[in-house]
């Protein structure tokens, strides 16, 4: 909890500085996390386009992973990815044994549906 008192903060919940939503870490809301299998990604950027939380990390035109401090785990990226579950797979934050195996397979590019 932030310790700023009611006399110090702007009234009415107004946010008087622009562009500070990045300071609000929403990753803790996530129940499912996307796991990225880089090897089979075709870098089409569909996930980047659709992610509602701007959490697809891109470097030099290549999808490189997720910003897990802000990703809320909605699974839209996994759903719109044309290569689908082979590249992005949603797994429970509290992963079961079979899911751990699944994560490893996705990450190693061995996952087949």
């Amino acid at each position: 909890m932030n310790a700023t008192g009611w006399k110090e903060i702007p009234i009415g919940g107004m946010i008087l500085d622009a562009g500070n939503s990045v300071e609000y870490l929403t990753g803790g809301w996530r129940a499912f996390r996307p796991v990225f299998g880089e090897a089979q990604c075709i870098n089409c950027m569909q996930c980047w386009l659709f992610c509602p939380d701007s959490s697809i990390l891109v470097e030099d035109g290549k999808m490189v992973g997720f910003d897990l401090e802000h990703c809320k785990g909605c699974g839209i990226c996994a759903s719109v990815c044309p290569v689908n579950k082979k590249v992005i797979k949603q797994v429970g934050e509290v992963a079961r044994d079979d899911e751990r195996l699944c994560i490893r397979m996705v990450e190693e590019g061995k996952f087949q549906e």
């Binding site: 700023t4 903060i9 009234i11 919940g13 107004m14 946010i15």
Partner: peptide
């Protein structure tokens, strides 16, 4: 600036 953003247990009470 932003009016009416999400305001949870950490600030709503102060407002």
């Amino acid at each position: 600036k932003t009016y009416g953003p999400l305001d949870f247990y950490d600030y709503y009470y102060e407002h």
